[in-house]
Simulated scan of single mutants.
Amino acid sequence: MSTKKIRLSVLDQSPIRKGVTAGQALQETVQLARHTDKLGYYRYWVSEHHNTGLLAGSTPEVLIAHLAGETKNMRIGSGGIMMPNHSTLKVAENFRMLEGLFPGRIDLGMGRAPGTDRLTASVLNPSNQFSEQDFVQQLYDLINYFHDRGEPGTPQSKIRAIPQIETVPGMWLLSSSGQSGLFAAHFGMGYSYAHFINPYGGAQSVQLYRERFQPSEDLQAPEVNVALFVFCSEDEEKIKRHRAVMLHRFLQFEKGAPVYPISYDDVKDIVYTDSEVERINYNSKRVVTGNPEQIKTQLTRLALEYDVDEIMAVTITEDFEDRLRSYELLAEVFELRG
């Protein structure tokens, strides 16, 4: 196995554990950010989700401002801002403000999914047509806002996103299907593939992004990372319990059943049907679990498969201390420098 040098980052959805309030979940996000900053993680992204009792992260732009102030070294960003929910000008101004406060440390990761159900998305933005062309136009407009320009005769030629900051946040597109990888290549943006949502076809999507990448004024060469669920522990029983909970949660999402915080005790005695077992096996590649050496082998193999040097770990555990410890073990085995 190659000794490929891998940079580690964090994607945090602010999960609400069973018996824990949303407020406590947000405080755990703050604590985890401080912790991984000291461990030597490269970047820390927070997500946007709505109308769910499982995840507390609804407004990345607010959380980023706080986390950037609580950390010193990591890049802090969104994973991602769901662009169809927002005014492009407001996104530009939010992230110009963040870039002005924390220059050179801010990432704007963007998605074109709503991060919620269609009804909630329609209330967040009543004019949302869920149109691919609208998303592409938003990307054009966003770049123009960041560079204080616009096509003659358009509103963008008369409007400036303030504060007018000389630097531009890192721009990334997120995808679990590959389509946004082509947009990222066209616009010269970074590309983050969500292996934790779809573990099939990602390597081909990344390769296509690299082949079609067009350098932009903000990014001269392709930049890629891959995000997946990771749990590292020296306790085999904890690993078994973690996989059981995660695989059940995937199944509940697919069924469209109400999703709420669960524990191992809630799922340990469930007998699955043959079709459910088939889906569980299909989804098993979305999460990587094991002891430190097993994790190092699996993540190194994945990085080689994708041809990337950055892995974003998403870790959700029953016990918060296990979550902190998982990131510690990852940092140790990959020899991060805090």
Rank of each mutant, 00 (worst) to 15 (best):
R96H: 09
M97R: 08
M97K: 10
M97N: 14
E99Y: 06
G100Q: 08
L101Q: 01
F102T: 10
R105K: 14
R105V: 05
R105Y: 10
I106D: 09
I106P: 07
I106A: 08
I106M: 07
D107L: 03
G109F: 12
G109Q: 10
G111H: 09
P114N: 09
P114E: 05
D117V: 14
D117Q: 12
T120I: 01
T120F: 09
S122A: 12
V123K: 15
V123D: 05
L124P: 00
L124E: 06
N125Q: 14
N128W: 05
F130G: 10
F130K: 07
S131K: 05
Q133L: 15
Q133I: 14
Q133E: 15
D134Y: 10
F135D: 04
F135C: 08
F135S: 04
V136L: 11
Q137M: 13
Q137L: 13
Q138S: 15
L139H: 11
D141K: 15
I143K: 12
I143H: 11
Y145V: 08
D148R: 15
D148K: 13
D148Y: 15
R149C: 15
G150S: 10
G150Y: 06
G150V: 09
E151K: 12
S157E: 12
S157L: 08
K158Y: 15
R160H: 09
R160T: 08
A161T: 06
A161H: 02
A161F: 07
I162K: 14
P163F: 06
Q164C: 12
I165T: 11
I165S: 05
V168P: 01
V168T: 14
V168F: 06
W172E: 01
W172C: 02
W172H: 07
L173R: 03
L173H: 01
L174I: 02
L174E: 08
L174D: 07
G178K: 08
Q179K: 13
S180V: 00
S180K: 05
F183D: 11
F183L: 13
F183N: 07
A184Y: 00
A185H: 01
F187C: 03
M189F: 15
M189G: 07
G190C: 08
H195D: 04
H195Y: 09
H195N: 11
F196Q: 06
F196P: 03
N198F: 09
Y200H: 13
G202I: 00
S205I: 00
S205A: 14
S205E: 02
V206H: 01
V206Y: 01
Q207E: 14
E211N: 01
E211I: 03
P215T: 02
S216K: 00
